[in-house]
């Protein structure tokens, strides 16, 4: 019987937890942090996936964390998030040759091969006006639920671009837009475009030229962002790339962690049996 592994991805916006039996995915949870303690939410997610899979803690062979999960006490091991997103990305979509992960603070573009090997990657640095956190703040300000952002953005006719690089000043830009009666969809689309443009830049820097790009992370299901990304790829004449999402994209990091956890577990078991022999 295959081993049970749990992957926990602690992002700055949400905590994602999955449970696997070998390559078989049995349970998942996602909990937005919204001013709560991520470590408690990690424990909560852990308990809940076990409950869903009707398993006990002692059945778990390996609990792997990723993201900001280095301090989870009950974890067996930790993997770096680009390693896990790459693996999780290929699991979700075997065609994927790049994974773009838009977290609350940082965006990452990871160029991978068909086995999920990371070929190169690029992460955003400093100044986060193009981040998920920023989009979420603005959406809250505009009274738009996170799930609606995409739908609204896609109706935009005249997107209004955000010029400031500093997120705080960009907030003011947006407030100014509202006072100038710019429509909500145009504001959201404007933010989507500036995010997409950053992501395309990251992708280009990784050196990928063709193949499927899978969006992962919290914003992967934002249809507006996906649309903006596709448009940017066309604008930038990088026609060899196709951006797609997956209903479970948000879990990519956690999935990768669980799968790598299984890999390490087998390795450790092997070492142990060798030591015993």
């Amino acid at each position: 019987m295959s081993e049970i592994t749990i992957g926990i991805d602690i992002g700055s916006g949400a905590v994602k937890t999955v449970l696997f039996r070998g390559e078989q995915w049995l349970a998942k949870r996602v909990e937005r942090i919204r001013r709560r303690d991520p470590l408690e939410l990690a424990r909560q997610g852990f308990d809940e996936v076990l409950e869903e899979a009707k398993l006990k803690e002692k059945d778990v062979s390996y609990t792997a964390t990723t993201g900001e999960g280095e301090n989870v006490k009950f974890a067996t091991g930790h993997f770096y998030s680009m390693t896990t997103h790459a693996r999780g990305g290929v699991y979700l979509n075997p065609e994927a040759r790049a994974v773009v992960d838009i977290g609350a603070l940082n965006g990452r573009a990871i160029y991978i091969d068909e086995r999920g090997k990371v070929l190169s990657y690029k992460m955003t640095s400093q100044c986060a006006s193009g981040s998920g956190q920023f989009l979420e703040n603005i959406a809250r300000y505009l009274g738009v639920a996170v799930e609606e952002i995409g739908t609204l953005s896609k109706t935009s006719k005249n997107p209004e671009k955000v010029s400031s690089i500093c997120a705080v000043l960009a907030e003011t830009d947006v407030i100014n837009m509202v006072s100038r009666a710019i429509a909500t969809p145009d504001i959201l689309k404007g933010i989507h475009i500036s995010m997409a443009s950053r992501l395309v830049k990251l992708l280009k820097v990784t050196g990928i030229t063709k193949g499927t790009v899978l969006l992962t992370g919290g914003l992967a299901l934002d249809a507006g962002l996906l649309a903006a990304l596709q448009e940017e790829l066309v604008n930038e004449k990088i026609s060899g790339l196709t951006a797609v999402s997956h209903p479970d994209s948000i879990h990519a990091g956690a999935i990768g962690a669980a799968l790598w956890g299984a890999f390490r577990h087998r390795k450790l078991a092997e070492l142990q049996s060798r030591a015993a022999a």
Partner: peptide, 21 residues
């Protein structure tokens, strides 16, 4: 240091996990 660890860590991971593959 978290972003530094993440980038350097992924780099090391990708060399170590895959160099033999």
């Amino acid at each position: 240091m978290a972003p530094i660890r993440e980038q350097a860590g992924t780099f090391a991971d990708s060399i170590k996990l895959w160099s033999a593959a």
